[in-house]
Amino acid sequence: MNILHIDSAITGDASVSRQLTAEIVAKLKAERADATVTYRDLAEGVPAIDNDWFQAVRLSPENPTAEQQALIDTSNAYLAEVQAADVLVIGLPIYNFTLTAQLKNWFDQIARAGVSFRYTAEGPEGLLTGKRAIIAYAAAGTPFGSDVDFASGYIRHILGFIGITDVEFVPADRLAFDREAGLARAQEALDKIAA
């Protein structure tokens, strides 16, 4: 089992989502001795897509410049990690009711027509099938699944769009109001996760 472990919180060791992703990965590894882990900390920076990226990655020039090749290589590296993974463990800290900019940038880098999804006569089809995603949702005030949670629905949708439909959440929400209860909800969800 290959695990892709992704964090995106900017709060370092104080991050609840980082603590949860570490616990999820440890649980998976304890149940599967053969598990390997690739770690990616998106808080270190993920380039936003722009016109240069579009010209290089989406239009795939025959003879890319060195700058274009660097953009292609970066996007390909993110995508290769997902392609190689059996399980994605993604930290989803909630900032201003939604996902981090770094995590959104990462999704923009890997959602590529003809590579991670394709358009068909019946509509879009995800190409990264047969994978599982476990999402560590952490929010100070945004209740998981509420009308003001603009992150969890997006994550489920974009993962499904690229073919990953087996999605589980480990939510630690409303931490600013009752931290103990929020962490207890997360622990209950974590206990139910099987490798």
Rank of each mutant, 00 (worst) to 15 (best):
N2S: 12
H5A: 07
H5K: 14
I10W: 00
G12H: 06
D13M: 00
D13W: 00
V16F: 04
T21H: 05
E23H: 00
V25F: 13
V25N: 04
L28N: 10
A30H: 05
A33L: 06
D34V: 06
V37G: 09
T38I: 08
D41S: 02
V46A: 00
D50G: 09
Q55A: 15
V57L: 08
S60A: 12
N63M: 01
P64K: 03
P64M: 09
T65I: 09
T65K: 01
A66N: 04
E67Q: 13
E67V: 12
Q68D: 10
Q68C: 12
Q69R: 13
A70P: 10
A70L: 01
L71Y: 07
T74L: 03
N76I: 05
L79Q: 14
L79E: 08
A80D: 15
A80I: 06
E81A: 13
D86T: 05
V87H: 11
L88A: 11
I90H: 03
I94F: 11
I94P: 14
T98F: 07
T100M: 11
A101G: 15
N105H: 06
W106V: 07
W106H: 03
F107M: 15
F107N: 10
F107P: 08
I110G: 06
I110H: 08
A111H: 04
A111P: 00
A113H: 11
S116T: 15
S116Q: 11
Y119Q: 10
Y119G: 01
E122M: 07
P124I: 12
P124Q: 11
L127H: 11
L128V: 06
L128D: 02
T129V: 14
A133H: 02
I134G: 04
I135D: 05
A136V: 09
Y137A: 02
Y137W: 04
A138M: 02
T142I: 09
P143A: 11
A151E: 05
S152G: 08
G153T: 08
G153K: 02
G153H: 04
R156E: 13
H157S: 11
H157M: 13
L159H: 02
G160H: 01
F161K: 04
F161D: 08
F161T: 13
F161W: 12
G163Q: 04
D166F: 03
D166P: 01
F169P: 01
F169I: 05
P171H: 07
A172Y: 02
D173P: 01
R174C: 14
R174M: 14
L175T: 06
L175M: 03
A176D: 14
F177M: 09
F177G: 03
F177W: 08
G182S: 11
L183H: 04
Q187K: 14
A189E: 09
L190F: 13
K192Y: 00
I193R: 03
I193E: 12
